[in-house]
Design a protein around this nucleic acid. Structure first.
Length: 550
RNA sequence: GGCGCCGUCGCCAAGUGGUAAGGCAGAGGUCUGCAAAACCUCCAUCACCAGUUCGAAUCUGGUCGGCGCCUCCA
């Protein structure tokens, strides 16, 4: 059974055929490091994480390249803002519109750190800025998420020779021109030769040419042309090139670095849907123009994270940063949220924020995922306890029910279909239900089974093992259930401001009341706990409690 | 304005020609001191209209509504 992927380039779902057998060469567009990441970035990298892990599970030897764009107008702009200082003259874009005092404080504290670092360095402030945010990306924003490690994380600033080399090839092939120190890609020339411009984004070349005019004074020949190399402006980081001092344009780094790290053509190029045009379209054009052969076979794009139906983006200022997200739920819950939706579909968070009076109370995406994850862990815990420590007799045989043995097969068939993690999660949920069903069996019924208790235990053990295997591929439920449940409860208690000491005191008091069969007092305490936001769970081996979410 | 995507149960969300996965919420039940949890049962014909087809949520055309890209964007 092969993996079917919806290829944006061909607009078809087709079997994945790697360039080299059993190898996956994949490039996922990284971030431009000028600020902290938000949930949109998180969604992207978590979506591709599941895809990467599934390829690894299928035995692929993975070469995964995820770049850092560390030379860019916005990085330079941030450097200028820092230079100007808190009270200096700089234009605030929409991203700052909703900033409150705390955010401004954090912002200026961050600026201060960067400024300090710059003082003890010979390097350009913009380079300090990008270094700083690469560090934040790696350690603070994505550190807690345990992403599948990239084979390489190239930075443009360290690949200037490769960039220059590629630009030169494009010029030599007649698809780029120098103009006043800049170098532009000649979209018209490229399209005349190949007819290929617009093949990824479905844009019509003629309309692109008509659509926009070249403004007077522009160094471009035609509107769709884009810069491969930008000549130096005052106070910018620059490098020496055959066309003078300057720096790379936006798209060229991905072309140069993917060719270097993966070789071309490579298998999969991924990123957010918003990169399709112009970024990826231009990447294809310049790469194929320079290299003279195909660039990448399969293009995959993840859907947006939206807020009230509108795309989350820095320029709109409607984003939830990853740091804020981590206060809302632990990393594993966020992963569960992302996995519950197909990678190409949007994820909307409006319901988690919109709690208007009169609106039907609906539980938020995060709370549902939180409870779902707890359900998974609770089920695994039950299974572990049911199986126990003692050895299972050799005479044990699996019960005649394939629900416990086809877990991996079902999972793979879901994942093979364009990495449908939503269906995979649903099938895991079905298996969890089956495990609970087994755990609910009465001792009498278990005895009557063919092979008795040992067969029952063997079946449970097999199902739990398979479940852990597929959950491991999705990189959730990897911890010991008890530890995970305890930390999730702590998280919720802290978040809701629940006094754990007080709850434990009430629990003890209730246990005493129950021992005396003082049901009235016992129920009274239950109600009291309920008002605290705590739900009781009485079991055979004593009572436990859980924080009610939402 | 151009190009493109989407509209599936109260909410979320799979499903791209063969007769609607799953989750949340809701109803009933088993279990329980009573509950909770767990498990069982029930709960949609797919925005609207017309067409193609033996057969459509899935294809075509139109209408209405939402969004995205076209400037930076995961």
């Amino acid at each position: 059974m092969t993996i079917q992927i919806n290829n944006v380039l061909t607009r078809q779902k087709s079997p994945f055929v790697p360039v080299e057998e059993n190898k996956l060469k994949i490039y996922v567009c990284g971030v431009t490091v000028y600020g902290r990441c938000h949930v949109g970035h998180l969604r992207c990298y978590l979506s591709f994480d599941a895809i990467l892990r599934y390829f690894a599970h299928k035995g692929f030897d993975i070469n995964y390249c995820r770049n850092f764009t560390d030379i860019d107008d916005k990085i330079i702009a941030r450097a200028r803002e820092i230079e100007a200082g808190k009270d200096g003259q700089w234009t605030q874009n929409a991203a700052y519109a909703d900033y409150d005092d705390t955010q401004w404080q954090e912002r200026f504290a961050e600026d201060e750190i960067i400024r300090k670092r710059a003082e003890s360095s010979e390097r350009h402030l913009a380079e300090i800025v990008s270094d700083y945010f690469i560090d934040i990306f790696t350690n603070e924003d994505f550190g807690p998420f345990d992403l599948y490690p990239a084979t390489s994380e190239p930075r443009v600033s360290q690949h200037i020779p490769e960039v220059i080399d590629l630009i030169q090839k494009i010029i030599d092939n007649g698809f780029a021109y120098e103009s006043g120190g800049d170098v532009y890609f000649d979209v018209a020339a490229y399209h005349a030769k190949t007819g290929a411009y617009g093949k990824l984004s479905g844009r019509d070349f003629t309309q692109l040419m008509e659509g926009a005019r070249v403004t007077p004074g522009d160094k471009k020949r035609n509107a769709p042309d884009f810069a491969l190399w930008k000549s130096a402006a005052p106070n910018e980081p620059t490098w020496t090139s055959p066309w003078g001092q300057g720096r790379p344009g936006w798209h060229i780094e991905c072309s140069a670095m993917s060719d270097k790290e993966l070789g071309t053509p490579f298998d999969i190029h991924g990123g957010g849907k918003d990169l399709i045009f112009p970024h990826h379209e231009n990447e294809i054009a310049q790469s194929e123009a320079g290299l003279g052969h195909a660039f990448c076979n399969t293009w995959m794009h993840n859907g947006f994270v939206t807020v009230d139906g509108v795309k989350m983006s820095k320029s709109l200022g409607n984003f939830i940063t990853i740091q804020e997200a981590l206060k809302m739920a632990p990393p594993e819950v966020w992963r569960t949220v992302v996995l519950s939706t197909h990678y190409a579909s949007p994820i909307d968070f409006s319901r988690t924020r919109k709690e208007n009076e009169g609106e039907e109370a609906v539980r938020g995406t995060i709370d549902i995922a939180f409870d779902r994850l707890e359900y998974f862990y609770e089920t695994l815990k039950r299974a572990d306890e049911a199986v126990g420590e003692e050895a299972i007799a050799d005479t044990a045989k699996l019960l005649d029910d394939d629900r416990g043995t086809k877990i991996t097969d079902t999972f793979e068939s879901m994942m093979n279909d364009d990495f449908n993690t939503a269906r995979a999660m649903a099938s895991i949920g079905d298996s969890m239900k089956y495990v609970n069903e087994l755990c609910d069996m009465k001792a009498k019924a278990i005895k009557k089974l063919d092979g008795g208790r040992d067969s029952w235990r063997l079946t449970l053990q097999t199902a739990a093992t398979e479940l852990r295997k597929v959950l491991g591929v999705l990189n959730i439920c990897n911890q010991s259930p008890s530890a995970a449940l305890a930390s999730m409860r702590d998280f919720s208690a802290r978040q809701k401001g629940i006094d754990t000491e007080k709850v434990n005191g009430l629990m003890a008091e209730r246990a005493a009341a129950r021992a005396e069969k003082n049901w009235a007092r016992s129920d009274e305490i239950r109600d009291e706990l309920l008002t605290l936001g705590v739900e009781l769970r009485d079991g055979v081996s004593g009572s436990d409690w859980k924080v009610i979410r939402s």
